Simulated scan of single mutants.
Amino acid sequence: MKLDYMQCWNGAMALLGAHKEAILAIAGVFLFLPTLLFAQYVAPPILTGEEDGNALIAIYAAYFNDNAFAMLASNLVMGFGGLAIYFALVPSRSHTVADNLTAALKFLVIYLIANLLSGVMIMLGLMLFILPGLYLACRFVLIPVILADRQERSSIELLKQSWSLTRDSGFAILFFLLIIMVVGGIATNVLEAVTGIVVGLATGGEGWMLIVNLVAALVGTVFQLILYAVIVSIYIELSGYRQTET
C-alpha cells in the first residue's frame, strides 16, 4: 500500500477525537505524571560548555549511574502506558480503560523483548552513519500497533510483520515522522521558552520550576499522543484495513 500523508494525518486526528477519553485517562497517569516527576526530582547534568569529549562522557556516565533506577522506572511506566494507548487506538478493539491496561500488562514482556531486539538492530544502524538506523526504526515502528491489533505472542513475528507491512515505505514513513517531529519540536521549544520567560518575569527572575516542568510535561504528552495516533494511522493505511472494512 502507498502511504498517503494527508490521509494518515486526518486518520490520526480522527483516532484522537474518537478515543480522547480513554487515551487522556491513560496518558495522564502513565505519560504526563512520570514525565513531570522525573523533571521535578531528577536534575539534569550541569554543563559549562567548555567540556571536551572525555569530560562529557564522564559527566553523563555519572548522571546515568546516579539516576539509573529513576530512568528505568520512568521508561518502564511510560512504555506500559504507551502500549495501553495503542490498545485503545487500534481499530479491532473497543474496550474500557481497564481492559486496555490489562491487555497491555499481559503483553508487556513480549513488547519489551521485541523492542530490545529491534533496538539492537537500530543501534547498529545508527553506528553506520545514522541514516540506516533511522530507516530501520521506521521499518519496526509498527511493532506495538501489530501487537495491540493482532495480539501476536511471538516477538520475532512482530518484527517480521512490521518489516513486511512497511516494505517499500520505510523512507516515506521516515520523511513523514521527521516532518512531524521537527515541527512539533520547534513548537514545543518555543512554548517552553515562552513559559520560562513569563515565569521568570513573574517571579522576579527566580523562576518556578514546577510550572515550567508542568508545561513541558503537558506539551510532551500531547506530542507523544499525536505520534501514537499517527503510527496507528500508518498501520491502518499500510495494512489496507479500510479497504478490508469496506
Rank of each mutant, 00 (worst) to 15 (best):
A172I: 02
Y86Q: 14
Y41P: 08
L47C: 05
A12W: 02
A25I: 13
M123D: 05
F107D: 09
L47K: 06
I23A: 06
I26G: 04
A84P: 02
I226Y: 05
A43M: 11
E157F: 07
V222F: 09
L89T: 05
F175T: 15
E237Y: 00
F175D: 13
I122A: 01
L158S: 10
D66V: 03
F64A: 10
V145A: 15
V141F: 05
E21G: 10
R93N: 10
A216T: 10
Y228G: 07
T166Q: 06
F140D: 12
S118Q: 06
T221L: 09
H19L: 04
G205L: 02
I231R: 11
R242Y: 01
A39G: 11
S239M: 05
I122E: 03
I211V: 13
T188L: 14
A172S: 14
V97D: 08
A62G: 07
A217D: 04
L142V: 09
A39R: 14
R93K: 14
L238Q: 05
Y111L: 01
Y63L: 08
F38R: 09
L31T: 04
E51P: 01
R150E: 15
Y60M: 10
Y135S: 12
A148M: 04
L83S: 10
C8I: 14
F129C: 15
G119A: 07
T244W: 07
L214S: 14
D66H: 03
S239D: 13
W163H: 14
L36R: 00
R242D: 14
N100Q: 11
A114F: 00
A103T: 08
A103H: 04
V182T: 12
I59C: 01
F107Y: 13
L101K: 04
I57P: 00
V90P: 03
L159C: 10
V42E: 11
I46G: 02
L72W: 05
P34W: 01
S164P: 02
S164M: 12
E206N: 06
L227H: 04
S94M: 09
Q40G: 04
A39T: 03
E192D: 11
E50W: 02
R150L: 13
F80D: 08
N189S: 15
G53R: 04
Y235Q: 05
C138G: 07
A27P: 03
Y228R: 06
